[in-house]
């Protein structure tokens, strides 16, 4: 095992332990947004896709990199936007204008 690999492996194990620690007691209310939020974080694979695009040097490589960049960006952008849409709905009290106007319509 090279020193570099050992260092990476150390970071890997520590990050796993942090991941376990961070999600300890989550109310069921937040399971769905939290899953979606974690889903956006693995969109970090975009960084890898960009690096691959930079090192590609034949048409197959370019094609693979293009698809990888597009996939990863979709994961990042879509993930964060949909999570935010979900979370903005969690309010303690309904916003008065919306509820009263709906009521008169009905």
């Amino acid at each position: 095992m090279t020193e570099e690999l050992l260092a990476n492996f150390t970071i890997f194990v520590m990050a796993i332990l942090i991941g376990f620690a961070v999600i300890s007691k989550v109310p069921a209310t937040l399971h769905t947004p939290l899953m979606s939020g974690a889903n956006s974080i693995h969109g970090i694979v975009l960084v890898g896709a960009m690096i691959i695009a930079a090192t590609a040097h034949d048409s197959v490589g370019y094609l693979l990199a293009l698809v990888a960049v597009a996939f990863a960006t979709m994961n990042v952008v879509g993930g964060y936007v949909v999570t935010d849409r979900m979370l903005q709905m969690f309010r303690k009290r309904p916003s008065p204008p919306a509820s009263s106007s709906d009521r008169t319509e009905g």
Partner: peptide
Amino acid sequence: NNVVLIIAGALVGASGAIL
């Protein structure tokens, strides 16, 4: 050999497992 991918990936892998 990219640390940010390792950290973020492991974080989601572990928190996802707990969830």
